[in-house]
Design a protein around this nucleic acid. Structure first.
Length: 444
RNA sequence: GCAGCAGUAGCUCAGUUGGUUAGAGCACUAGUUUGUGGAACUAGGGGUCGGUGGUUCGAAUCCACCCUGCUGUACCA
């Protein structure tokens, strides 16, 4: 026997993958239903694209590597490389390029889908997670960018967040572009290092970021990160420019004006938000939660943003044929679920079944009849799914958090009055089948 | 990827100058009540002490390597 044990399959999950239980899934379903409702009212089309794409279609190329491993899960099919999608934006660009002549211009679509990233997981961060994306493709109008922010707010508030509990930070790539001109920075690689450094302001503060703009920074564990090697006066310029409190670029000024027309004010201009991505070309936004999020040990953790987005005018054009300026936003649903579940006042009602205890298998017809009556009245009910002593059946009902059990043995059947036991109060009542439904509805 | 710390039952952990059959609490199973859950009591199951190799008469304990987890950091379309 012990020999066989070695050959048994592993019950461990692959790194970064998790089982998700009902409690979490119900919260997720709640969020999804709010999203769908809002999307319909905002006039977005629902789209689904496959989990796999050809690796090169979603922006991963294989220059001289054996495997396009960099952050994606891939395998080789015949001669072509396939990858699991790592976001919903790249597939959208592919979809638009492929169906350009048929789709309306502009094209507004939303999508819910699992994405996969082959990278190190962290608290609340997995290698498989659900994303929600909404995008406008084929319009340069900043009305689109503004409306995405308004729409996300509406979704979050429908999910039960107050205006004080979240904020939408907004900035523009134009700000950093002008900054680069000002300090005469042309080297693309160096620009990227600067952007990455600036993206870390909320975590490292200006002290850490300035180290990264200069020679580099040593972290708590002693690991050293090389910096952008800018000189002191350039670093100074960057800091003063990005600490400005009001926006000066045309795109942002226009968006703020639109916000005003929408009577939308729950946003903050924050020139320090960057959002790492190279493909953003204009306004960028980030959605942040403002309440404390704790890990399973009760410690408050740095939660970061639950989503963000921005304008990417060149992505569709990458496929060659069409020019389709676009803007979009995505939300990490699992992270939002994780955060929402921590709010004390947030409770999803679970309707657990009333359990009909089985005394005698030969009376099953009576039990099924009772079960049909309850289910027919919209009450969640089940006949105890097994063959056990009454005590076991009670323990089962308790374990699944059933609101009540029904005891229906020979005596009750004879008198036509089942016994209803409320599992919260522990009280029992003998009542006629006619009244049973109403009595149970009182308990639930 | 890099760095630091950790890995003993399903869970939380105890277990050092290396010494017989490795412990506790919770959970689980059975019973005390053959028609009654959440409490109590009794009994029981469950561990190749993360893995492999080494040192040793003897390793959960010491050494090496590997795997996994946590934290920081990098990358993140």
């Amino acid at each position: 026997m012990t020999q066989d044990k070695k050959n048994k399959p592993s019950k461990e999950l692959p790194l970064g993958f998790v089982d998700r239980q009902e409690k979490e899934l119900l919260v997720r379903d709640f969020i999804i239903s709010n999203i769908k409702e809002v999307m319909i009212r905002y006039g977005f089309q629902y789209l689904e694209t496959p989990s796999f794409e050809y690796t090169d279609s979603i922006g991963k190329f294989l220059p001289d590597k054996d495997r396009p491993d960099e952050g994606v899960f891939s395998f080789q099919d015949e001669k072509k490389w396939l990858s699991l999608r790592y976001d919903l934006t790249a597939p959208l660009a592919r979809y638009v390029a492929k169906n350009y002549l048929e789709i309306p211009k502009p094209f507004k679509r939303y999508q819910l889908g699992t994405v996969w990233r082959n990278e190190k997981p962290g608290p609340g961060r997995f290698r498989e997670f659900l994303q929600f994306d909404a995008d406008f493709v084929g319009t340069q109008s900043l009305q689109a960018d503004a409306e995405l922010c308004v729409m996300i707010s509406e979704i979050l508030e429908k999910c039960g967040l107050s205006k004080e509990e979240y904020s939408i930070k907004i900035s523009s790539r134009k700000i950093t572009e002008e900054l680069f001109k000002k300090i005469n920075l042309n080297n693309n690689e160096q620009k990227l290092i600067v952007l990455r450094a600036l993206d870390k302001i909320d975590r490292l503060g200006w002290t850490g970021v300035k180290q990264l703009l200069g020679e580099g920074r040593k972290d708590k564990s002693g690991d050293f990160t090389k910096g952008a090697n800018l000189n002191a006066s350039n670093i100074e310029t960057i800091e003063t420019e990005l600490k400005k409190k009001s926006a000066e670029t045309n795109d942002l000024l226009e968006i703020f004006k639109i916000f005003k027309d929408y009577n939308f004010s729950n946003f903050e201009f924050d020139p320090s938000i960057i959002r790492g991505l190279e493909y953003y070309t204009g306004p960028i936004f980030e959605v942040n939660l403002k309440f404390d999020v704790k890990n399973n040990k009760g410690q408050v953790i740095q939660f970061g943003s639950i989503g963000g987005g921005g304008r990417y005018d060149n992505l569709v054009n990458n496929f060659g044929n069409y020019d389709a300026p676009a803007t979009g936003i995505s939300i990490g649903l699992d992270r939002l679920v994780y955060a929402l579940m921590q709010k004390k006042e947030f409770k999803i009602k679970q309707s657990k079944p009333v359990v009909i205890c089985v005394f005698n298998k030969n009376l099953m017809k009576e039990y099924i009849n009772l079960q049909n009556i309850l289910r027919g009245s919209g009450i969640s009910a089940e006949i105890y799914p097994g063959e056990s002593k009454l005590k076991k059946q009670m323990e089962y009902a308790n374990k699944i958090k059933a609101p009540a059990v029904i005891l229906y043995g020979e005596d009750e059947i004879k008198s036509g009055k089942p016994t209803l036991r409320d599992l919260i109060s522990g009280k029992e009542k003998s009542i006629s089948i006619k009244e049973l439904v109403n009595e149970i509805k009182k308990i639930i």
